[in-house]
Design a protein around this nucleic acid. Structure first.
Length: 538
RNA sequence: GCCGCAGUAGCUCAGCCUAGUAGAGCGCUGCCCUGGUAAGGCAGAGGUCCCGGGUUCAAAUCCCGGCCGCGGCUCCA
């Protein structure tokens, strides 16, 4: 879509000029990830049909000066640095919404696209339609992975058996990664007394997103974060400098009452599970620990096939509302910055977007519609150790205050699963696929042979299923629709030779010795290969 | 929370404009077919047409209010 950006901007200008000619006050023009937008000041909102009337080519004179578009006596903000060009003839208005540049201001934002040829417009519209086929909410429904229900509540997903298989695989992999970095897994309860949230500061800084309730003369809150619990574990005994860094990990399920309009499938929910971890360490250990975390995170993202084009690193600095001294913030921010620089990575500085308790490094990943979602996060925190008065005993016997790092590599299992489903369009790598093999006997006479193969696969912990219900053609279509990576067909020929016919993704079909196939498949799963190596490499 | 657009069977949707017996495909159940590579045939079950109110002889259909979903905005992992 990037190749159209200059053309869209030109189209947006023409559209804006058409609006101005009819007396509308246009205040801004810019580009979205996959369209242009024009902001107007208007008391009454336009409907889509009315907005479409201005979507037509015209040749009025205009000037661009310093990010400002000058037309007639109006001055319109141009929110893009690129130069508009091309000769847009075909327009499509996609959506009208309301934009709030600041709490007291409100504009009507019209989104659309423009192209030079009708064919380009058709291509774009069919791309948009196709993109909806990669929507994780639709894939999740089709593959029977998870569901939402009115009775349960908005933003509270229920994971079905097949969805839970994917979560378990993700957790197994992360346990290996965490162990390789020296983490010890813990488990903590979900509800704590308000006393704890007052010590941590969440009670004041995060209260509007917390679920707080009263019970038996006590006030309690459901946890929106796991850190206070991990801190209490750290605090439960005295710690020596020799123990540091102490690393706790947990697949911690937390609840944050996001506003209704912010919810979006599994990408934005109210209850979710983080692959959380907290490191307690000395100030001197920060940079090395952060470097290890960044490298491991890139390794994990690479394992799922996210290339550097789909990953963006951000360094977020101190927000206006925060706790902790200037000195501490300065120290933490520079530790993160030098870790990034020593690893020679490109990153974007996000001014004032840190957490209220410390600066952070985020990893954004791009979804199928080109939107960026924050997944991994590494946050330095000097404030919570202070609030909880954490200590360790140093070499000379004196008490010192440790520093904390909060980190999550997937971010959350929920959002990560959604991104994976969109990234792979439902066709997950074999190790993540809920059903890895579907065995289809051609007819009843080879039923026993099919069952033997099935049980040999199950013995190797391969997730295989037998389907012997309908016609062969129908069963193949079903397995294909359900994104099963390997479709195994056996008939008389295969039974006599001890072979099987396997079809893998991309319609690669092969006849292969049954035992050989099982061991190749086993290796593909254990290695967590991205592609179907069991068939393509044999 | 704000603005726009929707809500009919488990799923995808038609019917609504112009009010007059609730529809299709997929899925599900049963029967037939015993299959060699992307939907075999026949039959059946399945509905508070989101909820509440109004107009009307009569409302899925027209009007009002609410709820929920979606596309954006704001916010976030």
């Amino acid at each position: 879509m990037d190749e159209y950006r200059q053309l869209w901007l030109k189209g947006a200008i023409i559209y804006a000029i058409n609006l101005v000619s009819k007396g509308f006050k246009v205040v801004g023009i810019g580009l979205g990830e996959r369209d242009f937008y024009v902001d107007i000041e208007s008391d009454s909102i336009l409907n889509l049909e009315e907005a479409k009337e201005f979507a037509k080519p015209s040749n009025n004179e205009y000037k661009i000066n310093d990010n400002k578009l000058l037309y007639g006596n109006q001055e319109i903000a141009l929110n893009e640095k690129i130069t508009p060009s091309g000769d847009p003839q075909y327009f499509e208005i996609l959506n009208i919404s309301v934009h709030h540049p600041s709490p007291d201001k409100q504009y009507v934002r019209i989104r659309g696209v423009s192209f030079e040829t009708e064919e380009q417009l058709k291509d774009y519209l069919s791309w948009l339609e196709k993109a909806s086929e990669t929507d994780h909410r639709i894939i999740g429904e089709k593959l029977d992975l998870f569901s939402f229900h009115d009775e349960v509540g908005s933003g509270l997903p229920l994971f079905h058996p097949k969805g839970q298989i994917i979560r378990n695989e993700l957790m197994d992999y992360m346990r290996e990664i965490n162990a390789s970095m020296g983490y010890q897994e813990v488990y903590t309860s979900h509800v704590y007394r308000s006393m704890l949230w007052k010590i941590s500061g969440h009670y004041f800084m995060y209260k509007d997103k917390m679920l707080i309730f009263n019970q038996e003369d006590d006030e309690l809150g459901i946890k929106p974060m796991n850190c206070p619990a991990h801190i209490m574990i750290f605090k439960s005994r005295s710690r020596s400098y020799r123990d540091l860094p102490v690393r706790f990990s947990e697949f911690g399920t937390v609840y944050r009452w996001e506003k209704k309009g912010e919810l979006y499938g599994l990408l934005r929910v109210r209850g979710f599970t983080q692959d959380d971890g907290h490191v307690f360490l000395t100030e001197d250990q920060i940079k090395d620990e952060v470097k290890i975390l960044i490298s491991k995170t890139l390794e994990v993202l690479g394992k799922f096939g996210f290339s550097s084009n789909d990953v963006r690193l951000n360094l977020s600095t101190r927000p206006d509302e925060s706790i902790g001294s200037d000195q501490l913030w300065e120290k933490a921010t520079s530790a993160l910055e030098s870790a990034l620089k020593e690893l020679k990575l490109n990153y974007v500085v996000k001014d004032k977007e840190g957490a209220f308790y410390g600066p952070k490094i985020d990893f954004d990943i791009r979804d199928s519609l080109g939107r960026w979602w924050q997944l991994s996060t590494i946050q330095v925190d000097f404030n919570l150790p202070e609030r909880f008065k954490l200590e360790y005993t140093d070499k000379d016997g004196s008490k010192k205050r440790p520093v904390m790092i909060h980190r999550a590599i997937y971010g959350t299992l929920d959002r990560f699963m959604a991104i994976l489903l969109e990234h792979f369009r439902g066709k997950l790598p074999t190790w993540l696929s809920p059903v890895q093999v579907r065995v289809l006997p051609v007819n009843q006479s080879v039923q026993e042979y099919a069952k033997t193969l099935l049980s040999e696969m199950l013995k190797e912990k391969i997730r295989a299923e037998l389907d012997d219900g309908d016609t062969l053609a129908k069963r193949i279509k079903r397995a294909y629709d359900e994104a099963v990576p390997y479709i195994v067909v056996v008939g008389r020929k295969e039974m006599e030779n001890g072979t099987l016919t396997v079809r893998s993704r991309g319609n690669v079909e092969r006849v292969i010795d049954a035992k050989q196939f099982i061991s190749l498949l086993k290796r593909e799963i254990v290695d967590r290969d991205l592609s179907n190596t069991a068939v393509s490499n044999s």
